[in-house]
Amino acid sequence: MKKRLTVDELTPVAREATRLALENHEAEFRQYRDNPNLTLGTIIEDDFLTFQLYLAGKTPGDAVVLTSTRVSRISGEVVSIEIKSISSSA
């Protein structure tokens, strides 16, 4: 069984991949840059970690996910990046 990479090891990978993916969406996301509710969350699965950039709400159900980056805990490679439509989350 292969050793799984940790959240600390994969956070820089997800951060850089998300930053690069957002370069084409700079104008859309600028409005959230200084928002005090902007939060980075991590979902831990067996072989994957999903890093979400979201706007926290009063309850977890009120949160608005802006980006979701999934990284393999085995290879350390980014599997997918989703950038949510701002118009549908506003």
Rank of each mutant, 00 (worst) to 15 (best):
68 S>P: 05
15 R>Q: 15
21 A>I: 02
4 R>A: 06
13 V>T: 15
15 R>W: 09
67 T>N: 02
14 A>D: 05
13 V>W: 08
5 L>Q: 13
88 S>D: 14
18 T>F: 01
61 G>P: 02
45 E>M: 06
62 D>R: 01
56 A>T: 08
73 R>S: 07
76 G>C: 10
22 L>W: 01
84 K>G: 09
4 R>N: 01
48 F>P: 00
33 R>D: 07
63 A>S: 14
8 D>Y: 08
61 G>I: 05
90 A>N: 12
90 A>M: 10
57 G>E: 02
42 T>D: 00
11 T>K: 15
16 E>C: 00
24 N>Q: 06
60 P>Q: 09
63 A>P: 02
85 S>E: 13
26 E>H: 09
57 G>T: 05
19 R>W: 11
50 T>A: 09
76 G>N: 03
41 G>T: 13
14 A>P: 09
19 R>Y: 14
82 E>R: 15
17 A>C: 08
19 R>K: 14
7 V>Q: 10
63 A>K: 03
52 Q>A: 04
55 L>A: 05
59 T>L: 13
43 I>S: 05
26 E>R: 15
30 R>L: 11
51 F>N: 04
44 I>H: 11
32 Y>E: 08
72 S>V: 12
23 E>A: 13
13 V>E: 06
6 T>A: 10
24 N>C: 06
43 I>P: 00
25 H>K: 09
18 T>V: 03
2 K>D: 12
74 I>Q: 03
38 L>V: 12
51 F>T: 01
60 P>L: 07
48 F>V: 11
34 D>G: 03
38 L>F: 12
25 H>R: 10
22 L>P: 00
49 L>E: 02
44 I>Q: 13
27 A>K: 15
